[in-house]
Design a protein around this nucleic acid. Structure first.
Lengths: 118, 118
DNA sequence: TTCCATACTAAACAAAAGGTTAGTGCTTAC
DNA sequence: GTAAGCACTAACCTTTTGTTTAGTATGGAA
């Protein structure tokens, strides 16, 4: 007889950690959250985002925007004017992350408080 | 007049990312989730955990257990027998992570499905 | 003409995270 | 007495992640 927690065996629980990692990877790294927050406040161009996030380098911004786009969290729109104008915005799908971010924020706030109280 | 989303300004949102990072740091790295899962199934000794997590090295297990203990998520109990016996268990506080992990898992599962469907 | 801005990319480097190998001092089993 | 298990730790190496610096082609302003 196999031991279970909430009706799941340990190997089932371990398997469930793969999507947990997936979700964390989507938000991971130093810059993804600030970029997502910036875009919650509207469509923005590369240089605007870079101005709003202190110390981010062009290389990192470019790389993280690509990652977020691959995951369909943001949309990249190119206007074929000269010179090119590129606009970034959160997709509807990207907005579904808000619930996840709020859960993390709430636990994180409680944790921070707990750790400061000794 | 400052633009807001859910009644928060952009700088307030940016500030909220700090506890989000705190929460993510608590779960971050390759090994913390597997360790937490292993301990959901009961109190275990160092060698037992290491046997249940394929490929984890003693160095990493020792380091991650220390991290989790510092964050009060697990408890370390030393029996002063010879040789020493050490037991690790999830704290009640550690169990509060379950809700966070479930939220991440649910979003991650939906995301994985979405990405596989093209 | 010189400077600045835009949206990037390349190359080289530094820092952080993780892995490998080996060893401690103690006990029990063969 | 040799081997294996226990709960670690140290030293060193590799991989991943992020930073720095510089450069592209284009256009507009001073």
């Amino acid at each position: 007889m196999e031991e279970t927690v909430d009706g799941l065996t340990q190997s089932e629980c371990m398997r469930d950690m793969i999507p947990v990692r997936d979700a964390m990877d989507v938000l991971n790294g130093k810059w993804k959250l600030p970029i997502i927050v910036a875009l919650r406040f509207g469509t923005k161009r590369f240089r605007e985002i870079s101005r709003e996030i202190p110390k981010i380098s062009d290389r990192m911004l470019s790389k993280e925007l690509k990652d977020l786009e691959m995951n369909e969290l943001i949309h990249r729109k190119v206007y074929d004017s000269f010179p090119v104008v590129v606009e970034y915005s959160l997709t509807e799908y990207g907005k579904t992350l808000n619930a996840v971010i709020e859960t993390l924020r709430d636990w994180g706030q409680a944790h921070r408080k707990r750790m400061l109280e000794r």
